[in-house]
């Protein structure tokens, strides 16, 4: 299936989580922390660390490691304090 990362289409596999699909995509999917802007990637992949936070279909701060991909999903990488009210 196809999901979109920052508007770029990538192929993902049914059963993948958003985080797994992002890591497998080969794109630069590092987020920037809200505190210092430091770059991060998922650390635990089991819902514990919250370093996988992404915006999915406009909803921010989702745990990408717990959400399965779905056709046409729009993923945005979070850069610093997430914009609200989009």
């Amino acid at each position: 299936m196809t999901i979109h990362v920052e508007g770029h289409p990538i192929t993902a596999r049914e059963g993948d989580t958003v985080s797994a699909a992002l890591l497998a995509s080969g794109l630069d999917v590092r987020r920037a922390t809200a505190v210092s802007g430091a770059k991060r990637l998922p650390y635990c992949m089991m819902g514990v660390c919250f370093d996988c936070l992404v915006t999915i279909d406009g909803v921010g701060n989702r745990q990408g490691c717990l959400v399965p991909v779905a056709e046409g999903m729009q993923i945005d990488i979070q850069k610093g304090k997430r914009e609200i009210g989009k």
């Binding site: 406009g58 921010g60 701060n61 609200i84 009210g85 989009k86």
Partner: peptide, 8 residues
């Protein structure tokens, strides 16, 4: 505050 609607 509509801007807060998608805050967690």
């Amino acid at each position: 505050f509509a801007v807060m609607r998608s805050a967690t």
